[in-house]
Design a protein around this nucleic acid. Sequence first.
DNA 1: CGACCGATCCTC
DNA 2: AGGATCGGTCGT
Length: 202
Amino acid sequence: MYNKLPRSFYERDPLIVSMELLGKLLVRKKKKGEVVGKIVETEAYIGPHDKASHAYGNKMTKRTLVQFGERGHTYIFKIYGIHHCFCVVVGPRYTPAVTLIRSVEPVKGVKLMKKNRGLNNNVSIIRLTNGPSKVCQAFEITKELNGIDLCGEDIFICEGAKFTFEVGKSKRIGIDYAEEYKDVLWRFYIKNNKFVSKKQKE
DNA sequence: CGACCGATCCTC
DNA sequence: AGGATCGGTCGT
């Protein structure tokens, strides 16, 4: 019933993949239910040269190891001791690069998303999944899923309904330390979509 | 082993 | 504008 993206989808130019992930569906399966969201905002982190990347200079550590592995696997890390971020390993094998999933538009399982986020069922859905850590909370994505295959069953990405949209591009968020890479337009979002996390200058 | 700090988010 | 909060990473 779901048309999962094949591994070959991820094994292409990281910027192309990051852009083309817009509009695709992120699906998370749990025994208690299914949560689905349309991807509306992504960012690319392209390892070896990108000073914003954890794998800058081909830095290979316990944390970054999965970035050097199979394309289409997850790269999940914790930040500020509190929040999780969810990325997909992308690009040509086996150079480190990821797409960060920054925001999704809730499609299915809204009630469960709210519960996972600890929110009252009658709150607005507009701020439910508009940010990388919110997506992780709503979709129950934790470090236990780090390095697993998105071509598997627990969590995967598939084709969404066909619709047209314009792709917006901007600087990435929260990486002011990245010197000449802080201004590259490697953030992609669906223009005029209400579920994109925040405005950012181009 | 200690120190530093962050691809965030919420509250003030 | 500031604080929460902790694991990865690196230097000693």
